[in-house]
């Protein structure tokens, strides 16, 4: 059970002077229950890629399989795919339109053909899971703060109960606390519901902290694909394409180069602390493996 991309290509405005190949021979397998981070600078093709995963964009060539079924097959229901692969766009609060928050969250489930009661239940559940105070449910979404609006917008997709949740830079424009709240929320969805989560982000620090697999995109291609330590090992190459490893990775590499016996591949503050404590005090009890289910 997974999403498989087989040699997917996408070309914007083909056969014109403005032709741009946004995706080049993408081969990817997204397994159920993974927490994946997609990183890449602006224009690397990451937004184009995620819009292929729920069929909003159609590959110029190549195939995409959802649970073994070809999504470009004539009999395949694209609407059904969109029900099961939820996509939260950048600045999702810009899509709110209903008079009350509750009605807005109901929009998705109602489009799925659920009855009013069922959709309402879903909306309640979704709004509760994003931690919005109940007294706000029947207020206008336009009166909320930026962080709250974003949570409502995410609830709007969660209410559709997707198996896969894709978020395009869900923390853009939020302050540090707002950012942590949203990322914690997403991590909880992943942990508690076993949802497959794909997080598109610019922030290496965020990605390193949460995901268990990183896909690095560059010029429409997958440049690296692996666990964070593996990917950040290439920090010099990442820099060349305008990306960077987390700050601590640099620090640990510099310390290792200076002769300190440390694991140069720590990617989070917590890992770095454990490993530095070990190096400096010789006590390894501080070492805690970070489990990411």
């Amino acid at each position: 059970m997974s999403i498989i991309l087989d040699k997917v290509n996408y070309i914007y405005s083909p056969d014109t002077a403005y032709q741009i190949q946004a995706l080049r021979d993408i081969n990817l397998e997204i397994k159920d229950g993974q927490f994946i981070g997609i990183i890449g600078h602006t224009g690397s093709g990451k937004s184009t890629l995620i819009q292929h995963l729920n069929g909003l964009m159609r590959a110029t060539s190549g195939a995409i399989y959802f649970h073994g079924l070809d999504i470009y097959d004539e009999d395949f229901e694209l609407r059904e795919l969109r029900n099961r692969v939820g996509l939260v766009f950048q600045y999702p609060e810009h899509q709110l339109f209903e008079t009350t928050i509750f009605d807005d969250v109901c929009f998705g489930p109602q489009n799925q053909g659920l009855t009013k009661e069922e959709a309402g239940l879903r909306a309640f559940e979704a709004l509760r899971s994003v931690g919005l105070p109940e007294e706000l449910y029947y207020q206008s979404p336009f009166d909320l703060s930026g962080g709250q609006k974003r949570r409502v917008a995410i609830a709007g997709v969660l209410a559709m109960k997707p198996e896969v949740l894709i978020l395009d830079e869900p923390t853009a424009g939020l302050d540090p606390a707002g950012r942590d709240e949203i990322l914690d929320l997403i991590a909880r969805m992943h942990r508690e519901r076993g949802m497959t989560v794909i997080l598109v982000s610019h922030s290496m620090e965020d990605v390193a902290k949460y995901v268990d697999r990183i896909v690095v995109m560059n010029q429409g291609q997958v440049l690296y694909d692996g666990v964070p330590r593996e990917v950040f090992r290439h920090y010099r190459e990442l820099e060349k394409i305008g990306l960077a490893a987390p700050q601590v990775t640099y620090l640990m590499h510099e310390l290792a180069a200076a002769g300190l016996k440390v694991d140069a591949e720590a990617t989070t503050v917590e890992e770095a602390r454990a490993c530095l404590m070990e190096a400096l005090t010789g006590v390894s009890s501080a070492r805690r493996d970070i489990h990411r289910e």
């Binding site: 819009q51 729920n54 909003l56 609407r79 969109r82 029900n83 939820g86 996509l87 939260v88 766009f89 999702p92 810009h94 899509q95 929009f107 998705g108 489009n111 799925q112 709007g156 997709v157 559709m160």
Partner: peptide
């Protein structure tokens, strides 16, 4: 274009 796609992702027709 963006809003249309976002609403289509929520099942809009």
């Amino acid at each position: 274009d963006k809003i249309m796609k976002a609403q289509m992702a929520r099942g809009a027709d």
